[in-house]
Amino acid sequence: MPPAARGRGAPPYPWSGPVIARLHGVLLAKQPEEVVVDCHGVGYRLLCPLSTFLGLPEVGESAALFVHTQVREDAIHLYGFVTEEERHLFRLLLTVQKIGPRLALALLSGLSRAALVSAIRAGDAARLATVPGIGKKTAERLVLELRERVGKGEVEGGPTHDSEQDARSALINLGYRPEVVDRALEKVRDKGGATDLNAWIRDGLALLGR
């Protein structure tokens, strides 16, 4: 229905609230930043953090994702998460000034949910600033706006991750042989290691591509 037909003052779109809240189907494809889920013959592409990628089953198996739907004038974007808690934190991050979906995903990829909440509650802007794309001012804004809004239970209830082991799993899932991945990550470790999960994967891929 064209906007004029809905009358003056009507919203620009004939829906409100989330369009898709959860998807359950067959996992058709997965990469560290996006997945495709087949639901009754329709393939849905979802952007996701690395934590979700690492928690997914193998391609061809059944998968369920909690979804955040972003409706824009020119597109509908879907963001997938393995837990409701992760989606809740993603939405909380979006309430911070100048934090869009890309940076929110970067935060959830660079730090585990528990580590991210802990850093915010502790006012540890320096740790938040280790995430690629998050500068000092943005990190300080995260602390200022969210410190009193994230719950203590999220710190204790969130999963803990070893960044190197998570990076190993991600690289193997990309098709690299385990022994080759181990050699690459050993070289990263010999150089002093990496600051976060994204850095482990990035540095590992740089060595694997040689």
Rank of each mutant, 00 (worst) to 15 (best):
T69R: 11
T69Y: 10
T69V: 09
T69L: 06
T69C: 13
Q70H: 12
V71A: 11
R72E: 08
I76Y: 01
H77Y: 04
H77W: 06
Y79Q: 05
Y79H: 13
G80H: 05
F81M: 07
F81Y: 08
T83P: 03
E85V: 05
E86V: 01
E86K: 04
E86M: 06
R87H: 01
F90A: 05
F90M: 02
F90I: 03
F90V: 03
L92S: 14
L92D: 04
L92C: 10
T95W: 12
V96H: 02
Q97T: 15
K98W: 08
K98A: 14
I99S: 05
I99G: 09
I99V: 15
G100D: 04
R102F: 02
L103M: 15
A104K: 00
L105P: 03
L107R: 10
L111T: 12
L111R: 08
S112L: 12
R113M: 04
A115S: 14
A115R: 15
A115G: 12
V117A: 13
S118A: 15
R121K: 11
R121L: 09
A122V: 05
A122M: 06
A122S: 07
A126P: 06
A126C: 02
R127D: 06
A129L: 09
T130G: 00
G135L: 08
K136N: 07
K136P: 02
K136H: 10
T138C: 10
A139Y: 08
E140Y: 02
E140M: 05
R141I: 01
L142N: 09
V143P: 04
E145G: 09
E145I: 12
L146P: 02
L146F: 00
R147A: 13
E148D: 14
R149K: 15
R149N: 03
V150G: 03
V150P: 01
V150M: 03
G151H: 09
G151C: 00
K152D: 14
V155R: 04
E156H: 14
G157W: 07
G157E: 07
G158Y: 05
G158T: 04
P159G: 11
P159W: 11
E164P: 04
S169P: 00
N173Q: 14
N173E: 08
L174S: 05
L174I: 07
Y176T: 08
Y176C: 05
P178C: 02
V180Y: 01
V181D: 13
D182H: 07
D182F: 00
R183F: 08
R183Y: 09
R183D: 14
L185I: 03
E186P: 07
K187W: 06
K187E: 15
K187I: 10
D190H: 04
D190P: 03
K191F: 12
K191Q: 15
G192P: 08
G192I: 02
A194H: 09
T195H: 04
D196E: 11
N198K: 04
N198P: 00
A199M: 11
R202V: 10
R202Y: 14
D203V: 00
D203I: 00
